[in-house]
Design a protein around this nucleic acid. Structure first.
Length: 393
DNA sequence: GCTATTTGACCTCA
DNA sequence: TGAGGTCAAATAGC
């Protein structure tokens, strides 16, 4: 269990590489240290419960077509998920006073800030939620393996199953891991590496990798030895303009064509440039409001929403709005028509898609078993607040 | 015309 | 030497 705490904080600390602009959100009102403490204070079983529920929700999502004609199974599945989230929520309020106080503070702050449902949903629809969850879960799995080796893992810990493999490693770590005696193979452009797996969109075009909030330009594709699927090479759209070194490689998994392995290299500098793209990063105040609001979402909003678990970690529930001045664009199908900066808000790679998990989250938010805190109440007026903030900016 | 993807050729490195 | 990474000309959409 200690491992899980360490994993969560570790995952969070490592996030700045992947979500540099999101990470800025933590810098003023709630420092990284404070957040770390809050994560560490959070009950392990609660985290485990949330993750289990998230996993079940994801399973449900993937099996939704099959369950459509089996209302009983569907209902049972929903009940199970809701039950876990409810239990988690009760734990959140019932645990150590210091933790509760911390969460309560976040809750209060967030109530003051308020946020909009649509913004949360945009975040849910982005792959940030998925990725952040993957980060946490994989870290947990990794630590569980570590713990098992040490013979100090209990059954509850081992329950988190069916998780996607993911690693966040530095290039040096990779080299050390892959070769102890051989000199590590060096590539021209090796910086920090972050490798994650993300599911392909289950509805719409499954040929395209999920968005990640940045704009990428494909510059190559290569057949890889031992892989059934080619690897796509992408660089940041702003590479030339702002000397942004960020790159990523996308490849389908051999054993799961519906899952992409995405490897990120280099850090985005395009959003840091004084002359950088048309949409500036959100103000610090906006970031803070965002952060607190999303933290509140976790602390209050029934704890029933899978992505909210990751809100603690990535926090950017609206990458389009302020995600470093970029948004994802189509791969393959869309050609031309601008660089995509600050454009699409509800599309994925230029195509509107449905997000069953989001709907599920909606259902949970509004379910009778949910918290007495009405999500609608929380979110409603915030729409106006954000709109007015946008106008100011 | 601009910007994007495709794809064969070329380069780098172990 | 070969696998993996990148370049750049050709091509296509808007």
């Amino acid at each position: 269990m200690v491992h899980q705490h360490r994993s969560l904080t570790k995952a969070y600390i490592q996030l700045p590489f992947k979500f540099p602009h999101h990470h800025n959100m933590f810098k003023s009102k709630t420092s990284q240290k404070e957040l770390k403490q809050q994560l560490e204070a959070m009950d392990e079983n609660t985290i485990s419960l949330i993750l289990q529920a998230c996993s079940l929700a994801r399973d449900l999502e993937s099996n939704l077509p099959n369950l459509a004609n089996q209302p009983n199974l569907l209902s049972n599945s929903l009940d199970e998920i809701t039950k876990k989230f409810d239990t988690a929520r009760e734990r959140v309020y019932g645990q150590d006073p210091s933790t509760s106080s911390s969460l309560h503070n976040m809750l209060t702050l967030a109530h003051q800030q308020q946020i909009g449902t649509s913004h949360v949903q945009e975040w849910l629809r982005s792959s940030y939620a998925q990725q952040a969850m993957d980060i946490i879960q994989t870290q947990l799995v990794a630590d569980q393996k570590e713990a098992k080796i040490g013979g100090c893992i209990d059954d509850d810990d081992a329950e988190v199953k069916g998780l996607q493999a993911m690693d966040i490693v530095s290039a040096s770590d990779t080299n050390i891991a892959s070769s102890s005696s051989q000199r590590p193979r060096r590539r021209k452009d090796q910086g920090l590496i972050s490798k994650i797996t993300v599911p392909a969109p289950r509805i719409g075009n499954t040929e395209i990798p999920p968005e990640d909030g940045f704009t990428w330009r494909k510059y190559g594709q290569k057949e890889i030895m031992g892989s059934r699927f080619p690897r796509g090479y992408y660089r940041c759209t702003h590479q030339k303009l702002y000397n942004c070194p960020a790159k990523k490689q996308v490849q389908r998994l051999n054993n799961d064509p519906l899952t992409f392995e995405v490897m990120y290299r280099g850090e985005h500098t395009c959003h840091m440039s004084a002359t950088a793209p048309s949409i500036p990063p959100p103000s610090a105040e906006h970031h803070n409001a965002t952060q607190e609001s999303m933290a509140q979402t976790l602390a209050t909003a029934t704890t029933t929403d899978p992505p909210t678990t990751s809100l603690w970690l990535s926090m950017d529930f609206n990458p389009i709005r302020g995600g470093g001045g970029s948004s994802s664009r189509m791969i393959g199908g869309d050609r031309g028509g601008g660089d995509g900066v600050g454009t699409s808000t509800t599309t994925r790679y230029g195509k509107e898609v449905d997000f069953p998990v989001v709907d599920l989250a909606d259902a949970m938010f509004n379910s009778g078993s949910s918290s007495s805190n009405s999500m609608d109440l929380i979110f409603h007026s915030a729409e106006n607040k954000w709109d007015s903030e946008d106008k100011k900016n």
